Computed example of a mutant assay.
Amino acid sequence: MKHVHSGKVRDLYETPDGLLLMVASDRISAFDHVLEPDIPDKGAILTQLSLWWFGQLADLVPNHVVDRGPDLRSVLCRKLTMVPVECVARGYLTGSGLIDYRRTGMVSGVALPEGLEDGSRLPEPIFTPSTKAPVGQHDEPMTYQQVVQQVGSDVAEQLREITLAVYRRGAERALERGIILADTKIELGWDADGVLTLGDEVLTPDSSRFWPKDTWSPGRSQESFDKQFVRDWLTSPASGWDRANDAPPPRLPGEIVERTRERYVEAYQRLTGTTFTG
């Protein structure tokens, strides 16, 4: 197989018959940096959870999966021409959306009610796209009109409809398992027939924020089953990281690595209702 591309988390290889083997590594990234060390079993959890979700979403949108790969971390998939927009849906206010809201009263140009706090549930899920920045650069929020200007009104409407449909289905399934899906990012591309297709990963702790329903309380940072735990440690005094001066991030302590793995495993097991065996 020919190596095609390596991202922050995934490696792509082309097979002799023109398909792609997508391998999820155990690498973890935050704030546009790949961190050290790896999180054990993370790649397998991302791939197996994505495969489960692709099945849950199959009636909403086609996906790129052809078959499972030779191990738990890999999947054989069709090539897609990726849409040049990050498709994000939010049902709750936090993260970069909260920063945008506090500054403008809007998120990606969508006006929101006054008085919302960190963790507030939004009146309805919203489509909050962003740019697809090159590796090492930051994605920037986009308004819906900017998406229209980039891909046209018909494609923009499809992107919004699919993204919100995926979010709503994911939020519904997660809530049945006692988990709040705060927000999620999906990757869409056109297949060989020009059909918008779900690619990459979907509804994993790397691409979504998952919160325990029984501890959710607006007005503070929420407990989570995702890599927000790592972000929180990196921005705490305990890490000693000077982000303002572009210093390289510190190495993750063993305790943070293990507790992050535990959160990924718990997300997988609670969402799918099955035991992760690694």
Rank of each mutant, 00 (worst) to 15 (best):
I186S: 01
W190R: 13
D191P: 14
A192E: 15
A192C: 08
A192H: 14
D193S: 06
G194N: 06
G194S: 05
L196R: 10
L196W: 08
T197S: 01
G199W: 00
G199S: 06
D200V: 00
D200L: 00
E201T: 10
E201Q: 11
V202C: 10
V202Q: 08
L203P: 01
S208K: 07
F210S: 07
W211D: 04
K213F: 12
D214T: 06
T215P: 11
T215L: 08
T215I: 05
T215F: 11
S217F: 05
S217A: 14
P218Q: 09
R220L: 13
S221F: 12
Q222T: 12
Q222F: 14
Q222D: 03
S224P: 08
S224C: 14
F225A: 07
D226C: 12
K227A: 13
Q228W: 11
Q228R: 09
F229M: 03
D232V: 07
D232Y: 10
W233L: 08
A238M: 03
R243Q: 15
A244Q: 15
A244E: 15
N245E: 10
D246E: 14
A247H: 14
A247N: 11
A247F: 06
A247I: 02
P248V: 02
P248G: 02
P248S: 02
P249N: 02
P249Y: 00
G254Q: 01
I256H: 05
I256A: 03
V257A: 01
E258Y: 07
T260Y: 12
T260Q: 04
R261G: 12
E262S: 15
E262M: 12
E262D: 15
E262A: 15
R263N: 08
Y264K: 00
V265G: 08
Y268T: 04
Q269P: 12
Q269I: 03
R270F: 10
R270A: 05
G273K: 13
G273Q: 12
T274L: 11
T274F: 05
T274S: 15
T275C: 07
T275P: 07
F276M: 10
T277G: 08
T277L: 15
G278Y: 03
